[in-house]
Design a protein around this nucleic acid. Structure first.
Ligand SMILES: [Zn+2]
Ligand SMILES: [Zn+2]
Ligand SMILES: [Zn+2]
Ligand SMILES: [Zn+2]
Lengths: 156, 156
DNA sequence: CGGGCAACGTTACATTGTAACGCTGCTGCG
DNA sequence: CGCAGCAGCGTTACAATGTAACGTTGCCCG
């Protein structure tokens, strides 16, 4: 049940709905709590395929939760990232919903400077190439991040 | 003339000296100016194999240049990065001297959470794997960043 | 010899991220 | 039941990182 490329039009409401349902299932299975607050933050992050900054999330969150403050958001984002439900896009200090939540995987993104969208690619071969490169340097890899920026098919 | 792994002891003074000389040569060849200020910033970044934050650089710079302010540092860093003399480590908002200055290449790092050092690996196969992954998604890659964090050989 | 530009100075501010402590409501146990 | 302990969240204040905007200086070239 893999996600279609974000650059092709699709029913994004379904993206969001499925991501939330999936997150709920995962959290239940793990015995951790996807509280309403966390769910709202996850939903906000998922609203688009463009990475959302913490303060962008905060602005949105405050529309339904006036008391929200930066720590509120950062805690929720930290939880969601720890559970593998979102990824942090390091080159943008921003967050994006994970398309393969539940399956441990490295973070690989194609970030379009034209439309701003970021597409997660879960490329096994790339992942393997990274593992090899790390091994070659006798480095114990724990977290692997790939961020490729450029132009997506539609923006070329 | 490749750099030894940073995790093995080496004459780091030589690292710095060579990096500066090389930078001068490159800038001369390109007709751009490695001004004293830029040279000082480059030297500061090169002082260790741990990525240096902009404000860390600022603190050091102020020891010899009291008037320095954030824009001073950011401009120099921007110049140095544009000329490929340093890399920005996105996951740390920090900068590190490039070991292959002059040769265009993607940014690939092994970042040790034990000692804080970051080692640049100029891995051709990894670079190729990224290119393939991007092509597969019909994405025009312009900038490729790989940041692998974990433990280096000495910290394991 | 002066117009134009790159580099740098300077001020002020914007954005992003955290420390620290308190409150509350649930949960598990005597 | 009654309450200790803890996760989650509220709240305040601040730290760290990054930039806009404009002024000044000195060099190069016409
Ligand atoms: Zn979608
Ligand atoms: Zn993912
Ligand atoms: Zn060295
Ligand atoms: Zn490099």
């Amino acid at each position: 049940m893999s996600h279609p490329p974000v650059s092709v039009p699709h029913d994004h409401g379904a993206c969001v709905h499925e991501a939330l349902a999936r997150a709920q299932t995962i959290c239940d299975a793990r015995g951790v709590k996807l509280t309403p607050l966390r769910g709202q933050v996850l939903e906000i992050v998922w609203r688009s395929h463009k990475p959302a900054g913490a303060y962008e999330v905060l602005d949105e969150l405050q529309k339904v939760h006036k008391a929200a403050r930066p720590p509120t958001v950062y805690r929720a984002l930290e939880f969601l990232e720890a559970e593998g439900l979102i990824h942090r896009i390091e080159s943008q200090n921003a967050y994006l919903g994970c398309i393969e939540a539940g399956a441990p995987h490295s973070s690989q993104f194609l970030i379009c400077r034209g439309c701003g969208a970021a597409e997660e690619i879960a490329d096994r071969e790339l992942d393997a190439a990274i593992a090899v490169a790390a091994k070659r340097a006798r480095f114990k890899a724990e977290r692997k991040t790939v961020e490729i920026s450029g132009l997506c098919a539609r923006c070329t």
